[in-house]
Design a protein around this nucleic acid. Structure first.
Lengths: 198, 198
DNA sequence: CCCTTTTCACCTAGGTGGTAAGAT
DNA sequence: ATCTTACCACCTAGGTGAAAAGGG
């Protein structure tokens, strides 16, 4: 059993259409993907990892006038499929369960040639984060049981569009309001700065 | 086999008589105790930990005029003996060996009632850091082999005197010169309260 | 006098969105 | 037009010794 942390915040973003920044150097996700895990064998070893699946075979663009996303054609060639192993892997079930598991080291990039092991995504495409739990089977011919030792968990409210700059201004505002790293006192130019209240 | 990292720096401090600050809230060591480990079983689990043994049953004081440490009597009652488990414990030999093992989370305190799990030391007393490797024995009656599964490593160049404020000015200078967190440009008031520009 | 505690300016290290310029 | 990049000021988080104040 896996429970998504900060579900309320994810829901807020998801309602507006979550966007995640991708940069050449790699950018963390916000909100961070975090889960609580129950029901593991405390004494067994597990490997935890994430990857990102394209939601559709489409490319998008954002129409500012209507504040909405439009299909802009077929998807670009898929980026190299990478996975991110939780850096504490492998570890015992007891260790994973005793506190929230946080993927705050995971970074997203749009650099197809990235050499830092970051997750590579196509900007202006939608993705579904996937969380995988692998039971490290102590049996000799463990390959035979690979299927049953591998479990995947999806949370649809964590879907997002990869962008290199925020498109929906309300997403920007929600990021600012909920991420402590953001400079709240930064001046907002009144010409462009149509602040949307919520 | 265990190899002390930054041995050259430890030697420099040791020559002058290393001092480590202890505070109520807990203070890290500088230099940090770090080791490289060789010869573990890559697939076995190990627990790594440190503790601190009094070097003598004595209390010291520092004679500023002669810039030397003098015995100031018998040791104070021993502080509660605590150990610091490396936070990655337990982990496989392969994980421990693939990079430097750093005890940078370890903090020293003089607060006998400390509740943060820090190492409690008596100020103005000398200590020998000890590094312990515990092999997690998979055998049923592993308690019987406790002695052989427990190995201790000492580096005499890491001995130090616990202090609440630096005594030897040359130790202070060496800390400043080698610890990046120290404010090198800190103004030295030529008259009281005159801030020096930088 | 000797030692300890508290506060503080300044540092490392790294995560933010804004902005303007660049690219397609 | 649309999207990307580089740089920046400002933030969080936490590690320093100096200095002044406190205690025995």
């Amino acid at each position: 059993v896996v429970q998504l942390e900060m579900k309320g915040l994810w829901d807020k973003f998801n309602q507006l259409g979550t966007e995640m920044i991708v940069t050449k150097a790699g950018r963390r996700m916000f909100p961070t993907f975090q889960v609580k895990i129950f029901g593991m064998d405390p004494l067994a070893d597990y490997v935890l990892l994430m990857d990102f699946a394209p939601v559709e075979d489409k490319r998008y663009r954002y129409a500012f006038h209507s504040s909405s996303w439009l299909v802009a054609g077929k998807a670009d060639p898929a980026a190299p499929g990478r996975v991110h192993f939780h850096p504490d892997s492998p570890a015992k079930g007891a260790q994973w369960m005793k506190q929230i598991v946080s993927f705050d080291k995971l970074k997203l990039t749009n650099n197809l040639l990235d050499e830092n092991g970051h997750i590579i995504l196509n900007s202006m495409h939608r993705y579904q984060p996937r969380f995988h739990v692998v039971y490290v089977d102590p049996r000799k011919d463990s390959e035979r049981y690979a299927a049953e030792n591998f479990k995947t968990f999806l949370f649809e409210e964590t879907r997002f569009t990869a962008v290199t700059a925020y498109q929906n201004h309300r997403i920007t505002q929600l990021k600012i309001a909920s991420n402590p790293f953001v400079d709240l006192g930064h001046p907002v130019p009144d010409t462009l700065g149509n602040k949307v209240s919520d």
